[in-house]
């Protein structure tokens, strides 16, 4: 199952030929009670890559992301932050999480929400102000700094959520279905914005979704998971050209092909799981 992966696609010329890992999971296993949720899950998040975790509901995507974020503990297996093979990067990479909708602190203004991580870290006020402004600009929210989350649309709230994570300038961005509860049109706008942000920052992103389309539009790599127990079925390298937009990605023939392949895999697995 693991053999058919090829992640070096050569579609980006500016990357060093050596592949570095931002995070790697080795045989991560997790149970809730007696139920096996994650069964020896191993995968690497390549440094500077946008990787999506795709799978049916309940397959353990959120659980895996939470383990990586440090919000949950694995029962066994290893989580390796950074690249142990590269000698000069002994510092652990920093991470920030973009949560699903409704995670903004309702009692904090947009500015204070975005400043949250920086305030916790004890960054001085001038730097915070400057960083918050810059980050809000990146997500096209200049001018809403004084508003409160309840005064914003769902799409705007998610932009703030992204800004809150980006403000820390983390090495790794973990995103758990951040666009699941916005309408289709807003979601497409947010995809384009996220692509643009990614082009500018080249963060390592782990993006959880159960939408094949979303995964394909955004990612360099799609890791497909199966359910009961949660495990990795296959990894797909997505070598659609970058810079991308929602539209430019969708019209490519290879988009349709990949979509078909992933769908087939998911359907087949669902049938197998059902029969088992």
């Amino acid at each position: 199952m693991d053999g058919d992966v090829s992640t070096e696609t050569g579609s980006r010329h500016d990357r060093s030929p050596l592949k570095h890992n931002a995070v790697s999971c080795e045989k991560v296993t997790k149970r809730f009670g007696s139920e096996l949720i994650l069964d020896e899950v191993s995968f690497e998040l390549t440094k500077g890559s946008f990787t999506s975790l795709l799978g049916p509901s309940g397959c353990g995507k959120t659980t895996l992301l939470r383990i990586i974020a440090g919000l949950e503990k694995a029962d066994s297996g290893d989580l390796i932050m950074g690249d142990p093979s590269s000698k000069n990067s002994d510092a652990k990479p920093s991470m920030a999480v973009v949560f699903q909708q409704g995670s903004l602190f309702p009692w904090k203004s947009v500015r204070r929400n975005v400043a949250f991580g920086l305030e916790l870290a004890g960054v001085d006020r001038a730097t915070i102000a400057e960083r918050v402004d810059r980050t809000l600009e990146m997500v096209h929210l200049t001018g809403t700094a004084k508003k409160f989350p309840y005064q914003l649309s769902g799409g705007m709230q998610q932009r703030v959520g992204i800004a809150r994570a980006l403000a820390l300038d983390p090495d790794i961005l973990l995103m758990d279905e951040p666009f699941a509860s916005v309408d289709a049109q807003t979601r497409e706008e947010l995809h384009d914005e996220l692509l643009e942000i990614w082009e500018r920052t080249r963060k390592s992103v782990l993006f959880v979704t159960h939408s094949i389309d979303e995964a394909l539009v955004l990612s360099d790599e799609v890791v497909v998971m199966g359910a009961r127990p949660g495990r990795i079925l296959r990894r797909f390298a997505i070598d659609l050209p970058r810079p991308r937009t929602e539209e430019s990605a969708r019209i490519l023939p290879s988009f349709a092909e990949l979509h078909h392949d992933i769908r087939k895999l998911l359907v087949r697995t669902a049938v197998d799981t059902f029969n088992a």
Partner: peptide, 16 residues
């Protein structure tokens, strides 16, 4: 609990 998760993910101390 989601707010608590956010705090933890952003490395808040107990006091924070």
């Amino acid at each position: 609990p989601m707010y608590r998760d956010v705090a933890r993910a952003f490395r808040a101390t107990d006091r924070q």
